[in-house]
């Protein structure tokens, strides 16, 4: 699946968005892949990723299925789980993804992953020149590249650019355009803080590849009327 390939935005709005993911090839290196996926995710923690997941269990940001009056109004909502709990819950390797909002942290993480030599495929989705920069820093010769050529066809059916830049951060389409638009409207009206709106959207992205920092940046810009 190309769930991190078609993020919408200009290069200026897409910088500081790095998704690093590990995947085992079915029939090639999937034996023992769960432990490798867990090692991959655990290694990421010290580099402060902003999101994490693997589509087999809910991601770092996740819905709460047992809300009560007391939780809602006295204890407070729990917008995300812990890294450790998520990692412990993984039933199989899937496509383990971590999201960084800082290229330096992403680069250091990739350096350590290279040293660990897990033997599973490691990919980075980001602006291609930034990825090439990381490859240079870490001394990696990339194997393959996949470019997005963007959206075509009946594009008149697409929402406005701001909405699209939020909704396409879940490549599976689980952050619907209508919901992203609702979050934009709430932030504009001052009824919701950008960070709350960002985590609200992130809960729908089961793969954990939604970049909450980028979402806050988009929402803050809209709030300021820019």
């Amino acid at each position: 699946m190309t769930n991190t390939l078609h993020r919408f935005g200009t290069p200026e709005t897409l910088n500081n968005d790095f998704i690093v993911f590990a995947m085992a090839g079915k029939g090639f290196n999937d034996e023992g892949a769960l432990d490798k996926a867990k090692t991959f995710l655990r290694t990421a923690i010290k580099y402060r990723p902003i999101n994490m997941g693997n589509a087999l269990v809910n991601a770092l940001y996740r819905p709460e299925k047992d809300l009560t009056f007391i939780k809602l109004y006295f204890v407070g909502r729990q917008e995300k789980t812990t890294y450790e709990r998520l990692i412990d819950e993984l039933p199989s390797s899937g496509s383990a993804a971590v999201v960084f909002d800082d290229g330096g942290q992403a680069s250091q993480f990739v350096r350590e992953i290279k040293q660990l030599d897990l033997g599973v495929s490691i990919n980075i989705s980001a602006l291609v020149d930034d990825v090439r920069g990381i490859c240079g820093e870490v001394d990696i010769t990339p194997h393959a590249v996949e470019y997005t050529l963007g959206f075509h066809g009946n594009t008149s059916r697409l929402p406005d650019r701001d909405t699209l830049s939020l909704s396409t951060m879940c490549g599976h389409g689980m952050v619907s355009a209508n919901f992203a638009k609702k979050m934009i409207d709430r932030v504009k009206e001052g009824r919701m803080a950008p960070e709350t709106a960002a985590s609200c959207m992130a809960k729908f992205c089961v793969c954990g590849v939604f970049n909450t920092t980028r979402a806050m940046r988009v929402l803050n810009r809209i709030k300021k009327g820019e």
Partner: peptide, 28 residues
Amino acid sequence: DPIREILERQGYQIGWAKVNLGLGRASN
């Protein structure tokens, strides 16, 4: 990669991409 130049010549804007770092190996 040999494709970027071809795509840019065709008028496609190249920016976002997914890069396989080549760290995997068949081990089953």
